[in-house]
């Protein structure tokens, strides 16, 4: 199976307190970047689908990672190569020139040039939380889609059974490949991904695999090519205009109430919650 995993770098959520708003824009200078966690799960899922879990050294498929962004985003691509992806593509673009729609157009154009069996994405990026690219991409490609995957089982007849996170449980759908699948966080549980290559009894470690030292060193030698946005024939201007950003208001200090009657009174008269 040949899988494309689109990636996005996001400001390190652990350092969210450093984010500054500057003139209606988020000031990105000096921010530490990290691979979007849901995209990490997508890479992990793609690796599990293209290997035998009992012997992960032999690759039994191909995982290609792609991102849109300036030169520095190659660090993000290398970090995915270091966990085991086979090669990488960077579509050169400035951060201001793209929104979810241009990303979906660019990916669709790239995918039309090269055959992939499966496009695996994180369900959303943890910065903008837009949750748009997977759905737009499936539409532009005219491919089936299954979003918010909590489980994936690959079948020999080039189909996937995807357990989608829905309210109150999971909804199993079968999609014929090629398809677009976006993943949710439970996809990295020990038995969430069932590949034809791995014994059903195999248990993966919970979560995303570590980047071993030798893999980090090998990542440098894996192919990473650059493609220009214009070469993909993408001319669409961003459709989303960001009007302004502001930080959430600081939480106000609470008050202590003397007794239950006081609490009920405040809930009724001040909070108007009762």
């Amino acid at each position: 199976m040949k899988i494309l995993v689109p990636l996005k770098r996001v400001a390190d959520p652990d350092n969210a307190n450093k984010i500054k708003v500057n003139g209606g824009k988020i000031d990105t200078t000096g921010l530490e970047w990290k691979l979007n966690p849901f995209d990490e799960y997508a890479v992990e899922t793609a690796l599990r689908l293209t290997e035998n879990g009992a012997n992960t050294k032999a690759r039994l498929g191909e995982v290609v990672v792609v991102t849109l962004g300036p030169k520095e985003t190659e660090t993000t691509l290398r970090s995915a190569l270091a966990t085991g992806a086979d090669r990488a593509i960077r579509i050169d673009a400035g951060d201001d020139a793209i929104d979810g729609d241009t990303v979906a157009h660019a990916l669709a154009a790239l995918i039309k040039k090269e055959n992939f069996d499966l496009i695996l994405l994180g369900k959303q990026a943890v910065d903008g939380d837009s949750n748009q690219v997977p759905q737009l991409l499936a539409e532009y490609l005219g491919w089936p889609q299954a979003t918010f995957a909590a489980t994936i089982k690959s079948e020999a007849d080039k189909a996937l059974v995807v357990g989608r996170e829905v309210d109150g449980g999971t909804l199993n759908v079968r999609v014929q490949l090629p398809a677009v699948v976006s993943v949710d966080l439970r996809i990295v549980a020990p038995k969430s991904v069932t590949s034809v290559h791995t014994a059903p009894t195999h248990n993966y470690a919970d979560g995303v695999r570590f980047a071993a030292l030798m893999q980090i060193m090998a990542a440098k030698k894996k192919p990473l090519v650059e493609v220009k946005l214009a070469d993909l024939g993408v001319t669409a201007a961003p459709k989303i205009e960001y009007v302004g950003f502001e930080l959430p208001p600081a939480r106000k200090a609470g008050v202590k109430v003397a007794n239950v009657a006081d609490l009920v009174g405040k809930l009724r008269n001040e909070a108007k919650a009762l």
Binding site: T75, G207, L213, I216
Partner: peptide, 21 residues
């Protein structure tokens, strides 16, 4: 020869994640 800034930084962050978990 084999080492660049990216490899060093990736190694430290991967190692940090490993030791925490």
């Amino acid at each position: 020869e084999a080492w660049g800034e990216d490899e060093v930084k990736s190694t430290l962050s991967s190692c940090y994640r490993f030791v925490k978990e």
